[in-house]
Design a protein around this nucleic acid. Structure first.
Length: 472
DNA sequence: CCTGGAGTTGTCCTA
DNA sequence: TTAGGACAACTCCAG
């Protein structure tokens, strides 16, 4: 065949730079990029799904600017790919690997179906710095503690980012594509989408800009400033990393270079990138981390379900616990789709320790609300806070949201950004929360700010007692 | 196999 | 005002 055609099956790799599967497809001949709306896309949380739709839209434009297109199709991936391959005469399908168990099982079936149909199928890296199965302890096992994992990888060579292809060869004719609007990716967001859109940075170009800004202006003070909840001191790269709008390899090399030119905080940022790797490492070796207490004994702990603590769960999800830092955090997430890292720990600690609610209740809510939702990082994070995970916090580590506010929101800027009730001049952001939430919640900025669900001292004492007396 | 040091992110009390 | 210790016990990991 004169000009072989390759389908590039895009999933969480919506970029042109440092894209091994794309580069391989371009090297082979003509490329037909395709995004498939399958059962997995259908099951995404509301904010993720909306954000993915925006990312697809943006990447379709980027592909057009590069002389290509993005074909949209709906249905089971194996079937869609075979049909499309037949339509365009493709003899190979390339994609970037995913690592969660559902994707892996889908992808391995897709691979064998394609091969049975005589189509070459090949998966590539790119979503992670290191493939999870390549990092082992000296005994040959996997790592369960972060620090040794960090020591094991910090000096490993990381592949140099690949350039964006000069030209993406088009097929002789383009197949038909769904209209993105028909997928209705924002359906579950209702009126919240308009609010969240104001806080969104979509697409590869925005991610590149953010990385450069961060490395040039923020990373040197990252160690000192990153914990202050109201400050723009973090990388804000979790979201582009989740959708693959930027590659971890590029982030790694940018930060390494900053470290070598003396940016003190750069090493701490590299460590955060490696936390992401560690989460994928754990998910790969112990996929039950997504659904079950990682240490089995904790299945017998008296976690309360949403049904068993309806008022507590409702007030936590709606940002009305009466604890300002917690409520500010929950509202920040609802409005922006993101939550400051320290706020995540505090909101999670409050739910699992003060309220004794099952971490999976919080995990599910985060999955629905976070536009930077990452299945591996979130499972690890929740289990770390709850104490049920690998390398978990000791049980007596109960965050006091008021003490944390005194340390990390000294001037109350974070609180005032997100809490409107009882203030003569509420901030625009705080008021926007009431535009974003469903009408059925019945909330108004004129409401009285709620009294605390329970006193922090009482909650702490109760948690320590129950955690200490657990029978495993 | 054994040994020993270490373990993201805290809080509270005491001296 | 601030620094240090208690809060547990266990698992992990390198040597």
């Amino acid at each position: 065949m004169a000009n072989p055609v390759t389908l590039l099956w895009l999933r969480r790799d919506l970029r042109l730079c440092d894209h091994p599967a794309l580069c391989a497809a371009v090297a082979r001949g003509a490329v037909v990029p395709v995004y498939i709306y399958d059962a997995q896309v259908d099951g995404l949380g509301a904010a993720s799904k909306w954000r993915l739709g925006r990312g697809i839209e943006c990447h379709a434009h980027a592909l057009e600017a590069a002389g290509s297109r993005l074909i949209l199709r709906r249905g089971p991936a194996a079937l869609v790919l075979q049909e499309l391959a037949a339509e365009v005469g493709a003899t190979a399908v390339y994609w970037s690997r995913a690592y969660d168990p559902a994707s892996q099982s889908r992808d391995s079936h897709v691979k064998s179906d394609l091969r049975n149909a005589g189509i070459a199928a090949k998966s590539f890296g790119g979503h992670l710095l290191f493939e999870p199965w390549t990092i082992n302890t000296q005994q040959g096992g996997y790592y369960k503690v972060y620090s040794p994992f960090w020591r094991a990888v910090k000096d490993l060579p990381v592949e140099t980012p690949l350039d964006k292809p000069d030209h993406i060869h088009a097929p002789s004719s383009w197949p038909q594509s769904d209209a993105l609007g028909d997928w209705d990716m924002g359906a579950a967001m209702q009126r919240g989408a308009a609010v969240m859109a104001q806080h969104a940075r979509i697409g590869e170009a925005a991610a590149q800009t953010r990385l450069h800004t961060f490395v040039a202006q923020k990373v040197s003070a990252y160690k000192e400033r990153r914990d202050f909840a109201a400050e723009d001191a973090t990388s804000m790269l979790s979201e582009p990393l989740t959708y693959g709008e930027i590659s971890p390899h590029q982030c790694w090399h940018a930060a390494r270079q900053a470290a070598q030119s003396g940016a003190a905080g750069a090493e701490h940022f590299l460590k955060e990138l490696v936390w992401r790797e560690f989460a994928y490492h754990l998910m790969h070796h112990t996929p039950h981390i997504l659904e079950k207490n990682w240490r089995a004994g904790w299945e017998r702990f008296g976690w309360r379900s949403a049904e068993e603590a309806p008022e507590e769960v409702q007030r936590w999800t709606q940002g009305r616990t009466g604890v300002e830092f917690v409520d500010a955090a929950m509202r920040q997430m609802y409005v922006t789709g993101k939550m400051h890292n320290r706020a995540r720990m505090i909101a999670a600690s409050y739910l699992t320790k003060h309220l004794l609610v099952d971490w999976r209740v919080g995990q599910a809510w985060f999955e629905d609300c976070l536009s930077d939702w990452d299945i591996a990082s979130n499972a690890m994070g929740w289990q770390w806070v709850a104490g049920s995970g690998p390398d978990a916090a000791p049980y007596f580590r109960v965050f006091n949201p008021d003490t944390q506010a005194a340390k990390f929101d000294r001037d109350g800027r974070y609180r005032d950004t997100w809490i409107a009730e009882g203030r003569a001049q509420a901030s625009k952001t705080a008021l926007s929360y009431f535009d974003a939430v469903p009408k059925s919640w019945g909330l108004s900025p004129d409401d009285r700010y709620p009294d605390p669900l329970l006193s922090l001292a009482e909650g702490r004492a109760r948690a320590l007692e129950i955690y200490k007396n657990r029978d495993f």
